[in-house]
Design a protein around this nucleic acid. Structure first.
Lengths: 183, 183
DNA sequence: ACCGAATGATATATTTATGTATCAAATTGG
DNA sequence: CCAATTTGATACATAAATATATCATTCGGT
């Protein structure tokens, strides 16, 4: 009877379109975003007075989605390797979100802090993977972290380009990380 | 006595500065480029009437440098694996150039064709690596190509950030491609 | 020292993106 | 069906980047 949010508000459509647009072209104009969202530019400004407001909203949304997806995926992981595997599977479909955060310079202080927490989480995951012998000890931590980021984005790109199925892409990304392309 | 080109012309300084600037921020303004090159913005417009002219000049320069570096490095390579290894070592120091080309949409037709040739070269290299058993047969060609591109850029980034020495970065990139981070 | 070319600084015009205001039309909720 | 809100279209203002033109100064070659 309450029937809250029966119709997803225009705000969400704009945010989705903006993520999509900015992932492909970080310098895209607000007209581009409005066009992709199928709304007038004026309406966009009603929901997000300035470009910065939109970017902040996007950032928060991306973090929310990624945090939620990983939290669910990691619920009953039993090892670091398991956590990596589940994380990749969960995050690859959100690769555009992930990439947006990775290339965005945050103006909002709380978002900045939250993002750095996520980075630190990956760094700790890498350490745990080393402790389990999954990642070699002589691989620099920064190299491993950068590669995890990259493989997620790469996998998403291949899916978005229609060259790979989501599950296959995530599998290839994980395999490339842990065993390379060899054999 | 001819003493041609004793002092590198300002044109080269601008191109170098532009590559550097655009690699870090694709949306940088011409003022940024001029500042980094240490020249006036008016002088920049004398050598490159429009932004497009500058971008085209950069693209050509990047391709020239990369083609020259790889041609030299591949002179006496005896296997596909050898070609990959030498190519990576040669190209990682030019990673900013490489990445610029990979993210640039060419307006010039001849540059577009030349770039696609380079892409096709990498694709053939991947096929040869498969034939040698260096790359597994079930790895999609597009995945391998994308990973080679990415590892070059990643290695350069780590070098540029001062986290890795050039030789170490190229080695890690090659190893990550062929064996992953594992063991 | 002189001359010509190239440069930097400055001014100005043009374009593009951004942001604001207004209003008629459409959609929603009652 | 009606009223209130929301939307899209339009017009307008502002800011930033781009592009062009001018001129005094500097630099290199002679």
């Amino acid at each position: 009877m309450p029937a809250k949010a029966l119709r997803p508000p225009m705000r969400d459509a704009i945010v989705d379109a903006a993520i999509d647009t900015f992932a492909r072209n970080p310098g895209a104009s607000l007209s581009d975003v409005a066009k992709r969202a199928g709304v007038g530019r004026a309406s966009l400004h009603r929901h997000f007075p300035s470009r910065g407001d939109l970017v902040t909203a996007i950032s928060r949304q991306c973090m929310d989605e990624i945090d939620a997806a990983t939290a669910a995926a990691l619920a009953d992981a039993r090892s670091a390797r398991d956590r990596l595997s589940r994380m990749m599977e969960a995050v690859v479909p959100l690769g555009d979100r992930y990439h947006f955060l990775a290339t965005e310079a945050f103006h909002d202080e709380s978002l900045q802090a939250r993002y750095e927490e996520d980075l630190a989480w990956v760094a700790r995951l890498v350490d745990a993977l080393k402790a389990e012998g999954v990642i070699a000890p002589d691989v620099p931590r920064s190299w491993a972290v950068a590669n995890i980021d990259t493989q997620v984005w790469l996998a998403w790109s291949e899916v978005a380009a229609g060259r790979l199925a989501p599950a296959h892409a995530a599998d290839l990304a994980l395999r490339t990380l842990l065993e390379g392309l060899g054999r």
